[in-house]
Amino acid sequence: MADVSSSGNTTPNTPIRPGRIKEFWRYFRENRGAVIGFYVFVAFLLVAIFAPLIAPFDPTSQNRGATLVPPFWQDGGSLTYVLGTDPLGRDILSRLIHGARYSFLVGSVVVVIAATGGIMTGLIAGFAPRWLDTIIMRIMDIILSIPSLLLALVLVAILGPSLLNAMIAIAIVLQPHYVRLTRAAVMTELSKDYVVSAKVVGAKLPRLMFITVLPNCLAPIIVQAALSFSNAILDVAALGFLGMGAQPPTPEWGTMLAESREFILRAWWVVTFPGLAILITVLSINLMGDGLRDALDPKLKRS
């Protein structure tokens, strides 16, 4: 954030606008949903970081004496296993807590890969001569014309099912969105006076790309990053559910759902809680994304 505010002003004497982050927070705070989403997200982040300390049991240790124990408020449940156990006698709460780690790993890795790749390609497309631009955008059109989950599924099938390959596949699938956004933003910035004057002063291409133009294109990209964070979690969970993501006994939420599918009518809790965890995480990120968009998009800013 701090880079964004300072890099726009190149001369040290120009007064920097008072506290961009403060201003951002003021707009962000107006959206109550976004603030709730933010706190839930932070809570999940803490759970993910301190998972081994919080979780009452080891996520993969099996207790054959206590399989399919219902959650504590139901008959037969006990406070030892707060949310019950799965068919192999593993504590569901502990698995969920450890699963948070995988979801955040997935979200961050995918967003980092997709965003860096997409921003670079988009910048190149924006600055490149017409023919190269056309080729890049056609390739992106091709990727976008294949339904994302199908493309990811085929990629994973060929690379071999694993969490890492699932992340790579989803990153490839999400990347064209960044390319399009960055290119569009670059195109509108390029015609503006400050870019022209930077060119006149003699700024070289890399400086123009990364220091002059890129910081001013970041607002839509940040919003997209929030959206694709939640998309990545959803898609990797879907791949896990289809058996093409993380492999058992990894306590990844989608994989947990896949393992428990045959028990849906006998033990509702093995199905309900992992999905609820996915929903709450994705919902909190999307709430935050909406708040980010309202706070960063000047068109929608209330004057």
Partner: peptide, 11 residues
């Protein structure tokens, strides 16, 4: 919008 539809189906 945030729903994991495979879970929604099971529910």
């Amino acid at each position: 919008y945030s729903m994991p539809i495979f879970w929604w189906a099971l529910l």
